[in-house]
């Protein structure tokens, strides 16, 4: 891939992630399941697609810029700390899990969703100096199974289309 293509794709991914995390706030998941920090993790679809399609270096760049811009556009500094804590752990786990041959994108996504919750709760415990918040972790982990599966299948669908595009990319799907 040419450098310009690479930069352009990263830009598209960052804006996609920002729009998705904004749209996510409009979905009142808390109304159905009242837990703090619960969300669908739509922006994780972008992280997964960048990790699989562009590589881990680009995925890290996209993730960090997205977190910073997300804070600028409305999350604020405490929002930044939480999203950074969750996202960094999630991407670390996902890029490690991607290398494990027994996991498909589904396993990677589920582990990433769980890691995101653990990272977020960890940050919350540190910032609020209260172990009480960790009482939510078991519930969040169970929900992460479902949200992780959903984002994994969304990312798989996108990637199947993307790798067939004539962009000079040498990636194919394994059986």
């Amino acid at each position: 891939m040419k450098k310009a293509e690479n930069v352009a794709l990263c830009g598209v991914m960052i804006s996609l992630a920002l729009v998705l995390s904004y749209m996510e706030r409009l979905i009142p998941l808390q109304m159905v399941i009242p837990l703090p920090g619960i969300k669908l993790g739509l922006a994780n679809i972008v992280t997964l697609v960048s990790l699989y399609f562009l590589g881990s270096k680009q995925a890290w760049a996209i993730l960090l810029i997205r977190c910073i811009l997300g804070a600028v556009f409305g999350g604020g500094i405490s929002g930044l700390l939480f999203s950074v804590g969750g996202s960094i752990l999630a991407l670390t786990v996902m890029s490690a899990a991607k290398k494990v041959s027994c996991f498909s994108i589904f396993g990677v996504s589920i582990l990433g969703a769980a890691a995101h919750n653990i990272g977020q709760i960890f940050m919350a415990v540190i910032l609020m100096k209260s172990i009480y918040i960790s009482g939510y972790l078991p519930y969040l982990l169970v929900i992460a199974l479902f949200t992780g599966f959903a984002t994994g299948s969304a990312a798989a669908g996108i990637l199947r289309v993307l790798i067939k595009m004539p962009m000079g990319i040498k990636i194919k799907e394994s059986n």
């Binding site: 699989y52 498909s104 589904f106 990677v108 582990l111 769980a114 798989a156 799907e173």
Partner: peptide, 20 residues
């Protein structure tokens, strides 16, 4: 050529077990 594992595999069950 890089290959991607995009379909659900048996190994993913381990990820689910781990999270549970």
């Amino acid at each position: 050529k890089e290959t991607l594992r995009l379909s659900f595999r048996k190994g993913d069950l381990w990820a689910i077990v781990l999270v549970i």
